[in-house]
Design a binder for these strands. Structure first.
Lengths: 177, 177
DNA sequence: CCTAAAACGGAACGATAATTCCAAAATGGG
DNA sequence: CCCATTTTGGAATTATCGTTCCGTTTTAGG
């Protein structure tokens, strides 16, 4: 999974995967069926792990602003680390395979919807707790944070953008009333 | 250029390029030197064209909010068109080639800096004209709009996201005071 | 018109790619 | 321990890949 994440689908060879997984080439085919099937399974594992991680993180937050700030701070800090320079697997797949490979489109859309739903519920909690005002479009805000998250994972691939990205996040938080 | 833009670097074969450009394979090598060199030239042409287009567009805008709204509306509408589903060449290259291919990093960074500078000057004009309040971090706002633009170009690869993306943009505009 | 240069069509070259094959080795359960 | 199953190491298969080659055709300038 990490190899696909880092190099993308096309630039990852089966030998790369054999090396990374430490199993024999024939076993790899026996177990997974082929490059594409393996890719899809890796993608689905990543997507599920990611969405659950986000959900769990936000469940533990008491303040919407603080929670979102921390979420983005972690994401941004991660982009500056060795492993985090891979960016977001979903984002990488989106830009690499769409629009030509329609087979991934449904999964990518499902991921988007799951993420914005998590953001949306989190913002609703902010309204219920009185932190946020009820007179704003929470759906739009959820879409803003999801889209911004995608942007962060792209721009964060450029080394040295921590401060600029964190500024962008602070500006976006300013949109919450 | 369009082929690299759509398929990415690794998935584009020289035969794809021969077909797209309609010249002989040997001439292609004679003229450009090789796949990588051709890619870099295509990228630089795109980057320059794009940055100049953005500059020219914003120069004609009298209102910051209206100008940014239109800019993003156009970008979002474009993602729903056939040609626009390619997304943004720079974004695609960033996610495909970083972090492994460091040779593109300088160009990608330069592009980021050019774009945020254009946004920043535009916001400054808004302050000078009285539309925007001077007591906000214009650099952070410029970074927000640049990062959001990147996010739009990713999420916009999923068909049917026009409304959601436009909502995200409206939410982000709400951050301007 | 002539001729040098450029472009062409087609193929060769060596490497890489995904997938399959097979005898041998390793594993795990009875 | 035995044996069936799984995994292995190594290679083969077929196709594609980026690059180069070369005789022929086309082009453009004098």
């Amino acid at each position: 999974m990490h190899t696909f994440w880092r190099k993308g689908y096309h630039a990852t060879s089966m030998q790369d995967l054999v090396d990374a997984m430490g199993i024999n080439r024939a076993s790899l085919y026996d177990t997974f069926g082929g490059k594409k099937a393996l890719f899809e399974q890796a993608f689905e594992l990543y997507r599920k792990t990611n969405a659950q991680g986000l959900q769990r993180f936000l469940e533990q937050q008491e303040s919407v602003r603080v929670g979102l700030r921390q979420l983005f701070a972690m994401a941004i800090e991660e982009t500056q680390s060795e492993a985090g320079q891979r960016g977001c697997f979903v984002v990488n797949v989106t830009t690499e395979l769409l629009p030509d490979d329609r087979s991934m489109e449904g999964l990518i859309r499902a991921n988007k919807e799951a993420f914005t739903a998590v953001f949306h519920r989190f913002l609703e909690q902010g309204v219920a707790s009185g932190e946020l005002s009820a007179d704003q479009d929470l759906q739009a805000a959820a879409n803003l944070f999801f889209t911004l998250y995608n942007g962060v994972k792209v721009v964060g691939k450029i080394p040295g953008q921590e401060k600029a990205l964190m500024g962008a996040v602070e500006a976006a938080l300013g949109a919450l009333r």
